[in-house]
Design a protein around this nucleic acid. Structure first.
Lengths: 244, 244
DNA sequence: CGCGAGCATAATGTGCACATTTTTTGGAGG
DNA sequence: CCTCCAAAAAATGTGCACATTATGCTCGCG
């Protein structure tokens, strides 16, 4: 008998393709406006077209790809206003988180935040830019995770991932790194249970980051080689850095 | 040639099935824990199984159905803690919305909110419970829509629809109708640009609604007749259901 | 020479048949 | 009588063939 493994029921393959495309998106390897056709992707990944199809639609449902009926999937090309809206949503969500956090702050939470701030300071002092960027985003994740509400954590996670993708379009070289002392000011306000100050500081902080957005490049929506993008993806698995 | 309309490219049909199931969910016609098998649904709606399949997975991605690999879709059976988390998320989000709104309040917005309050009062006075419930939820939608941020509006919309579904499980008879004067207090605080009071009032408001949650019924996860649920939605033909 | 209509090609959407997994059922053994 | 196991039945997942729609290209006409 020849191998009749045509329907091979491999749920891990879906996830692998999904993670690969998502990773390429988050790392900015897929430029805004790039067309993601099903057939080429199926060839690149060596899987059936239906699998690619399912993953593409899933990414579309998550608003990470722009799906147009009968016309396929494209990497979204966000307007500056789009990005501002995502940032505003982030800002609004964090204000709400702070309003809840001031009612729950305890020494343990403050200690953990202080530890995180120390890490950020250390990374900034030794000029470790990559770590600084990562920790800078992780700070806001810490804040929402402190509430222990998966719903809120997921919301912020979506917002963060989308804004990071968007920023890669508008902030090509200068990575958006939050100023550590602004984070420290938020923690200080929390320590004083001063909600108004915490919200004000957080708001200023976000507006500060938002102000750096510059529209520099727009083009290159055309022929990108998908194989060149997904081929060098090595079988490394460790992406998650410890956060908490 | 006979009619070869096998692949008929009807995107509207997807939406119709999606809306039908979503409506049944929101109206509480589908009890928690109900199994939604693909084949029976395909038969009920008179469409192919793939179409049902796609819709089910979409609802699963929206967290409105619980999808288990190789085991199909079920109407989620939320824990009391699950609901509390959704309520908390709603509360946190609204606190953030208020913190942004106090910076933007103008007479037009206040006038519109006053008009809404008047509607709510009118409905409450004449005992129109259905309208009261609807307007009560719409108030919070008004608040977030006032920011003009589609991201935030969509977040709140998701939260609202999910909580309404959940509440139908735990609040069988007494519909969750917000007290109108509490809404009025929020508007009053907004008028005074008093953020702390607005957040405090909103928080109390949500805790008040949350406090009504009672776990009364749990059973009935068993044989529910899907045809009986979806048949009256689409009165296309006479159903030979015999009686009832 | 520019331009629009019509055709050829490619890409997306859909139904169907089949493989795989899960659930149920029937029966044998303790 | 209960329990456990195996086989059948049902339900879900997947590849494939084909219909439909969009796109590019060429040719004819103004």
């Amino acid at each position: 008998m020849r191998a009749q493994r045509i329907g091979k029921a491999n749920p891990a393959e879906d996830e692998a393709v999904y993670q690969a495309i998502l990773r390429a998106l988050l790392e900015g390897k897929l430029k805004a406006g790039t067309k993601l056709a099903e057939t080429p992707l199926a060839a690149v990944f060596g899987v059936s077209r239906e699998r690619i199809r399912k993953v593409l639609h899933r990414l579309g449902a998550e608003r990470r790809l722009e799906m147009i009926p009968n016309r396929g999937a494209r990497v979204p090309r966000p307007t500056l206003d789009d990005i501002r809206r995502v940032y505003e949503a982030h800002r609004v969500l964090e204000a709400g988180v702070l309003s809840q956090l001031v009612l729950r702050v305890d020494d343990l939470l403050l200690a953990r935040l202080d530890a995180h701030l120390a890490e950020e300071h250390a990374a900034a002092r030794r000029g470790d830019r990559a770590t600084s960027v990562r920790l800078s985003g992780a700070f806001h994740v810490h804040l929402v995770d402190a509430l222990g509400n998966p719903e809120l954590s997921r919301m912020l996670g979506d917002l963060l991932s989308r804004s990071s993708v968007m920023v890669s379009v508008y902030e090509p070289a200068a990575q958006s790194i939050c100023a550590v002392d602004e984070h420290g000011a938020i923690v200080a306000a929390l320590r004083d249970r001063d909600l108004m100050r915490a919200i004000a500081v957080s708001r200023e902080h976000f507006l500060h980051v938002e102000g750096r957005l510059r529209l520099d490049e727009c083009p290159a929506p055309d022929g990108t080689d998908l194989a060149a993008i997904f081929a060098p993806v090595k079988p490394r698995r460790r992406v998650r850095s410890g956060l908490s």
